[in-house]
Design a protein around this nucleic acid. Structure first.
Lengths: 191, 191
DNA sequence: TTTCCAAGAATGAACGTTCACTCATTTTAA
DNA sequence: TTAAAATGAGTGAACGTTCATTCTTGGAAA
């Protein structure tokens, strides 16, 4: 059974290698080998390694956004929507640890930092489920009186390290623990 | 005025380059150039790059520990000691952003992960100010009923991202904000 | 005090390796 | 038959590290 979706094979191989070994531990030669494709073939689908890295990030982000939008309790109180987001993000990453490891790498690279900067500082109009929650929490004075970026770090900073340590096997985030830590994050941002 | 402490020059150059550009963005050739030393000279003081990276980490950790121990309010209630630690850690890193950036790189590398694993899982007897607080918070039932590693992530995860975003200029952690975010971290772990 | 020299310190060109990327050639498929 | 797709050996740049050579220095000898 030979795959005909070479682009998909390359993306998948890159995801696995980069998530496990980092950008510098994933040479194009290994990516092509893992994808079952010649070295030069990658360059028919991606202009260079940087483009491959960015397109892979975009695909993952799309999948994550889709997961979060599914069953999102639009009309429930802010607290329930906040907890839903944290819980589902944790669940998504627990089910897809490679996606988390990749996003973490990306987040800690120049690519990710400039994207983060854009998101926090520029006023792009396309409303984001996550940003909406923070805007509302501030406006309705449910959250502490702190800059949005600070509230954001308070809530998601913990979550990132928690996911990291779950994947590293320091503890196991089961449904009960997910509930507890989501509520702890809520405690951190709520007034 | 020529420095005679070549080892110190090399360590300092490595700190600056690695903090700014990461392990892979800091070739030995650039480190030696910045230190005002020939390429081969580094190898008189450090067996190889990995050893240099680890010794630099140890020096930074020593400085940070010394800062935290200074004026540590041993006999004050747990809450005050917890807030002291967070506040002083934030202050230290604000004063020494390169140290933070380096520690972050290290933390996100295989070296840092295996060290983290050792610290969390092995029972090394040398009591650490930080670990003591968590042990006591759990024992005295002041903290939420969660694994120590989870409480740890809840408190320090936020802090790491906050520092990162402060250094990236997304907001400015002044004394007032430091107080607010330290208390928010307390809210996250306290019952 | 001056001269000399041995040994440690420092040098930087060179080496082997690895990497991202190219392109002449071959394979595929319509 | 032919154009697009795929191949993989080849290229040059960059890297960590080595080592034959040069420089420095402090004490012994004159």
């Amino acid at each position: 059974m030979k795959s005909t979706d070479k682009r998909g094979d390359i993306i998948q191989a890159a995801l696995e290698l980069i998530a496990e070994k980092g950008f510098h531990g994933a040479p194009m030669s290994e990516i092509s080998a893992k994808a079952g494709v010649a070295a030069g073939t990658i360059y028919r689908y991606f202009e260079n390694k940087e483009v491959l890295i960015n397109e892979l990030h975009q695909e993952l982000e799309k999948k994550i956004t889709e997961h979060l939008q599914k069953d999102y309790p639009v009309s429930q109180p802010l607290r329930e929507r906040f907890l839903f987001l944290l819980r589902e993000l944790l669940r998504y990453f627990i089910k897809n640890p490679l996606h988390f490891r990749y996003m973490e790498q990306y987040f800690n690279s120049p690519y990710g930092i400039s994207l983060h900067r854009e998101r926090l500082l520029s006023k792009h109009d396309n409303h984001d489920i996550v940003m909406d929650i923070f805007d509302q929490g501030i406006e309705q004075q449910i959250f502490k009186e702190l800059p949005k970026a600070v509230l954001f770090s308070l809530a998601f900073g913990s979550m990132i390290i928690l996911m990291r340590d779950h994947i590293l096997g320091f503890f196991t985030l089961d449904d009960f623990l997910i509930k507890q830590v989501s509520e702890a994050c809520w405690d951190a941002v709520k007034r």
